[in-house]
Simulated scan of single mutants.
Amino acid sequence: MNHKILSGALLLAAAAFSSAAPAADDPAAAVAKAKAPVVQWQAPPAAPAPAKGKTIYVVTCTSQGIGCVRAANGAKEAGEKLGWTVRVIDGKGDPGTWNSAIQSAIAAGANGIIIDAVPPMLVGDGLARAAAAKIPVVSIFNPPPDAGSPVFAYVRPDHRAQGVLMAKWVAADSGGNANILVVEDKEFPELNERVAGFKAEIVQCGQCKIVGSIESTIGTMAQRLPGAVAAELMRKAKADYIVAPFDSNAFFVTEGVRQAGRSGKVKVAGYEGDPQAIQAIRAGTQAMTIANPAEWMGWQAIDEMNRAFGKAKPANIPVAFRLIDRSNAPATKGWLGDVDFRADYEKLWGKK
């Protein structure tokens, strides 16, 4: 397939399309638009010649966060295409481990560090040491860095727009009459952005109500979340939608729905488009996901790292996303995007 290379105004238009849901759209129209394939590669500016012999460390949020594992796998694959060594460290969902991992990477002589769903504000000491050592840092999933941040570039979707789209889906799917439980993991700023976007938009849905909130953390969700969901469903018998902050979390939400005897009566929705979520959607145990092409994000992070090595400006291109439900769930494991981004990046880097 020939993919149109975007630049300037066209790139901005594509970024707006990837955010899926203009406020003026009615919910059904916004959902239909967001379900369409992402058929254009959002091309960054011309890239510097690939640097040689680099060693990159990727610090993931946790091995339980499938989205960040997928992104790390993408970064490793892309880095190896450039002849680099890419080492992945499991952050284990713990800020102390995240900081020590960054410091270990510095001590090991890393040329670059990727923080993968690791909130920059929780690894300030590590990032300060990386900056002092003149080691570039690229962020995946997190919101844009504040002014003065040592983070060179960020690779992320518009999380708030994803929350808005989620609210439009609930409104359209429920016919404007939903009783919603929201699961919140407040550790991660991007997840807070999703919740904020959802809450701001859901008030536009006539008879939709948020009837409860369930707090969760990535480190404890496997042990605690199913029971917490089951207990909340006992208290909120009218609840018929649960919005999880990401798909790994939605897996345990679904187990809580089963424990409460509410399977088939409560619709579970999530974000990321991870393999187990796509499988659950095809099986009918999860209703939908707002999917990110996580492996593509890993490739994009490596491209940003090469820009840092080449003294170029960061591209900071917004990541495209797509609403996936049973009608358009891919047969492949996870949603990877609908273009051959690997070939496009290799061509950009002069590898094809």
Rank of each mutant, 00 (worst) to 15 (best):
A269Y: 11
V203G: 07
V229F: 06
R129L: 12
L127N: 05
V86D: 00
A294P: 12
I218N: 15
G124E: 12
W169C: 05
P22V: 08
R194E: 11
A28Y: 03
A294E: 14
M121C: 04
I218Q: 13
P275Y: 08
I317T: 11
N328Y: 11
P144V: 02
A71I: 04
V59I: 15
I113S: 01
K81Q: 14
T62M: 08
G284Q: 00
F246K: 04
V155L: 06
R307D: 06
G74A: 10
N316H: 03
M305P: 06
D340Q: 07
D94Q: 03
V39H: 08
V69R: 06
I281W: 07
Q279F: 08
A108V: 01
A13C: 10
F251I: 10
E184Q: 15
A46Y: 02
V266F: 10
G79F: 01
F141A: 04
I290T: 05
D125F: 01
P318K: 11
V137Q: 06
A329L: 03
G148Y: 12
G109C: 04
G350A: 09
V123M: 04
E304A: 01
I114S: 07
V138G: 07
A294L: 14
Y154S: 12
A147I: 10
N99C: 08
Y241R: 14
A161T: 00
S7I: 06
A200W: 07
V170K: 04
D125V: 05
A23R: 15
G112F: 05
N73E: 14
F141N: 07
Y271H: 10
Y57D: 00
L12M: 14
G261Y: 13
